[in-house]
Amino acid sequence: MKTRNLLGMLLLFLCTAALGGCGNDETEERKITGHKEYVLTVASEKRLGMAPSGGSLLTQVYAVRKESSAQWEALAAIAGFDYEPGYEYEIRVSETSYLDYRMGEPAWTEHELLEVISKEEKSSRGVPLNFIPGWYYEQSCVCLNAEFRHAVDADREEEIAEEIADDLESGSALSPEGLRRYIAPGFEHWFLLDAEKNVAAQGVLRSERKEYGEFPEACRRLLPPEGEVLEYMQWDFLGDAGAEGDAERYDVLVGRRAGVRSPAAPESVRLWLYKDLTDYYRDKYPEAGVRAVVICHKTDI
């Protein structure tokens, strides 16, 4: 009996020691796995890039270039760096890599300012429009691959309808020929990309909820939406700087496709993006008796 008890205690001790040894490798204190110092050029403007936490969150990041490279890269944070837009910097930084298995992300790298070598007021050249990887657009964004429609109501409709149609097709596209428009999660940013995911243009999307009674009567009358309308909004596609003067404005109906009753299914959501161009074509064709000209981009998301 004593032999069996002694053997059991020995086995328990060995198991505990083994488990404790395995656990020590994963619960040891934070340690430094790498450290180096080098010089960086920091561009005069920040750019959109992926947040350090990952996921689909976008944030403003530094555009930096290492002393031995001509390529601009993204850097999320530099501790102790008092950055001022409009100036290109040459700075010396330290790069320290850490490992700590107690953290959610056990391995990470931190950068810290050591010295500001120069600060020059200038516009940095060759900086990409953003540092967003190509996969992000397809996996995380909404592509507005829209069907285009238009309607004309005028006294001399037959005479001007073809001219207006040609005019609209060439200048009213939500996504110009060869490009596709994407909307980032949160509907705060938009991008125009070519087939290789190169960025042709980008900017800020400002959205505002409105009452359906405010929706333009001409849009409702000439190109009524099919299905159930759930919400009415106004979208302003602004340039990268977010200036009001370059806004491209649409009245947007958010709805459910006809015959689809499940509001929870993502494939059931439909967008109608309207623009009332009546005033523009009244001025362009003053003798035609233009009563309304409306365009609509319809897309499912």
Score class of each variant (00 low, 15 high):
K2S: 15
M9C: 14
L11G: 02
F13R: 02
F13G: 09
I32M: 09
G34K: 01
K36E: 03
V39Q: 06
V39W: 02
R47C: 12
A51I: 12
G55R: 02
S56L: 08
K66W: 03
K66Y: 05
S69I: 02
A76K: 04
A79F: 06
G80Y: 09
E84C: 00
P85M: 03
E88N: 06
E88T: 13
Y89Q: 11
E90C: 06
I91F: 06
E95A: 02
T109R: 07
H111M: 05
E112A: 14
V116R: 08
I117C: 01
K122M: 14
R125F: 02
F131D: 14
G134V: 05
Y137I: 13
C143Y: 12
L144Y: 15
F148M: 08
E157R: 15
E158V: 14
E159W: 00
A161M: 15
E162D: 10
D166P: 01
S170D: 06
E177C: 06
E177D: 14
A184Y: 03
G186C: 00
E196W: 08
N198V: 14
A201H: 03
R206D: 03
R206V: 03
K210H: 13
E214Y: 01
F215D: 14
P224M: 07
P224Q: 05
P225D: 07
L230E: 09
D240W: 00
G242N: 13
D246P: 09
R257E: 11
A258F: 05
V260E: 10
A265F: 09
L271D: 10
Y281S: 11
G289D: 15
V290M: 11
V290L: 04
H297P: 06
D300C: 03
